[in-house]
């Protein structure tokens, strides 16, 4: 067991400041801002339900990375929840496949108001490589209302973080 503790101490704290991730002072400013907004509007916690509505799983890999030690998205009060009933926001990936269309609508309906939707990745934003067809509804906004779009194939973790921050700001303006 002591080896494990030695490894932990040797590894040290790896979580990076937003400045290091993005090298963009605006994003760090937004990071501080988002924390303030989450503290104020959501009592310190923003709950996100992720829905893969037809992605190739590339976006999922990068969303997972948000939870690794470098990005540690929970430090901003953002966490991923298991049920839409517990969610403030949906993070939707993929073009919406017709086979997932009903499930996505139901997930949206199951999310309590006020809620908003973040379309994650090129496919979710505009249909991407798959577009609209007999099997695909294309962009997420063709099925449910979308508030924020994060382009990229897939968007790297820093872009995801930026998108979530943007969503917070937009929501503020809308109110």
């Amino acid at each position: 067991m002591w080896r494990q503790y030695v490894k932990m101490l040797k590894t040290g704290l790896k979580t990076e400041s937003l400045r290091k991730i993005e090298r963009d002072p605006d994003v760090e400013r937004l990071g501080v801002e988002v924390k303030r907004l989450i503290d104020k509007d959501f009592a310190g916690s923003l709950a996100i339900r992720e829905v893969d509505a037809g992605s190739c799983n590339g976006c999922e890999l990068e969303i997972h990375a948000l939870n690794n030690v470098y990005y540690d998205v929970e430090r901003f009060g953002v966490h991923f929840v298991a049920s839409p009933r517990h969610a403030d926001a949906l993070l939707v990936t993929g073009p919406v496949s017709r086979n997932m269309e009903a499930a996505l609508r139901r997930t949206y309906d199951a999310t309590p108001d006020p809620k908003w939707v973040i379309a994650c990745g090129d496919c979710a934003v505009c249909g991407g490589e798959f577009g609209e067809s007999y099997a695909s509804c294309g962009a997420v906004e063709n099925v449910i209302p979308v508030d924020v779009k994060i382009p990229g194939c897939p968007p790297p973790p820093a872009a995801l973080l930026g998108g979530i921050l943007e969503a917070m700001g937009r929501r503020r303006i809308k109110q």
Partner: peptide
């Protein structure tokens, strides 16, 4: 399965 069928072969 089949939920994420996007019609790749047709596309």
């Amino acid at each position: 399965l089949g939920y994420v069928h996007k019609g790749i072969e047709k596309l």
